[in-house]
Simulated scan of single mutants.
Amino acid sequence: MKWPTIIGITIVVVLLTFYEWPKMDQHQKKEKKAFVTITAMGWLLAILLLFFPDLPGPTQMIDSLFSPLGKLLEK
């Protein structure tokens, strides 16, 4: 039963948004878009890690992407 955890994560994200949103200037649209994007990505990552705890981290993804380039540069 993971629903209580999902609801808890969502409540924390909503509280964070209600706390931070009024502090941002009305005319800074790029800052608000960045805030929404980063917050949504963090919420999604938290939910994904809840269902798939063995999910590789971002450093492992970057390592798998750039390891062929590193091997090419070693030669």
Results as ranks from 00 to 15, higher is better:
residue 18 F to Q: 15
residue 48 L to T: 03
residue 23 K to H: 15
residue 10 T to G: 00
residue 35 F to G: 02
residue 31 E to G: 01
residue 7 I to L: 11
residue 67 S to Q: 04
residue 70 G to Y: 12
residue 61 M to H: 12
residue 13 V to A: 10
residue 70 G to N: 12
residue 74 E to S: 08
residue 31 E to M: 07
residue 1 M to W: 05
residue 56 P to V: 02
residue 64 S to A: 06
residue 4 P to C: 00
residue 41 M to R: 05
residue 11 I to T: 15
residue 36 V to H: 04
residue 15 L to Y: 12
residue 3 W to F: 11
residue 8 G to H: 10
residue 75 K to M: 09
residue 9 I to E: 08
residue 21 W to R: 09
residue 72 L to T: 01
residue 48 L to F: 11
residue 49 L to Y: 10
residue 4 P to W: 03
residue 47 I to M: 04
residue 30 K to V: 10
residue 34 A to D: 11
residue 10 T to Q: 05
residue 67 S to D: 04
residue 16 L to V: 15
residue 69 L to A: 03
residue 7 I to D: 09
residue 4 P to G: 03
residue 8 G to T: 07
residue 37 T to K: 10
residue 20 E to V: 14
residue 15 L to T: 08
residue 11 I to C: 12
residue 55 L to N: 00
residue 58 P to Y: 11
residue 63 D to Q: 10
residue 65 L to C: 03
residue 75 K to P: 03
residue 36 V to E: 06
residue 61 M to S: 13
residue 21 W to Y: 12
residue 22 P to R: 11
residue 30 K to Y: 11
residue 35 F to K: 01
residue 31 E to Y: 06
residue 72 L to W: 04
residue 28 Q to M: 13
residue 65 L to R: 02
residue 43 W to G: 00
residue 59 T to K: 12
residue 35 F to V: 03
residue 62 I to P: 00
residue 55 L to P: 00
residue 2 K to A: 15
residue 30 K to F: 14
residue 37 T to L: 13
residue 19 Y to T: 15
residue 39 T to I: 03
residue 55 L to E: 01
residue 72 L to Q: 01
residue 75 K to Q: 10
residue 3 W to K: 06
residue 70 G to K: 13
residue 65 L to V: 07
residue 52 F to A: 00
residue 65 L to I: 08
residue 17 T to R: 14
residue 24 M to V: 08
residue 71 K to T: 04
residue 63 D to K: 07
residue 26 Q to G: 12
residue 18 F to R: 15
residue 29 K to P: 00
residue 16 L to D: 13
residue 5 T to C: 11
residue 8 G to I: 05
residue 73 L to P: 02
residue 57 G to Q: 05
residue 61 M to C: 11
residue 29 K to Q: 07
residue 50 L to M: 00
residue 22 P to S: 10
residue 75 K to G: 07
residue 66 F to W: 05
residue 52 F to I: 04
residue 19 Y to C: 15
residue 33 K to E: 07
residue 28 Q to D: 14
residue 46 A to Y: 04
residue 14 V to L: 15
residue 21 W to T: 13
residue 32 K to V: 02
residue 33 K to C: 03
residue 42 G to C: 07
residue 41 M to E: 06
residue 21 W to S: 11
residue 10 T to H: 01
residue 36 V to R: 07
residue 63 D to R: 06
residue 26 Q to M: 15
residue 44 L to H: 02
residue 62 I to V: 08
residue 12 V to L: 14
residue 29 K to S: 10
residue 33 K to S: 05
residue 73 L to M: 01
residue 72 L to A: 07
residue 4 P to A: 04
residue 28 Q to C: 08
residue 7 I to P: 00
residue 66 F to N: 00
residue 72 L to I: 04
residue 24 M to W: 08
residue 58 P to K: 08
residue 55 L to F: 01
residue 29 K to H: 06
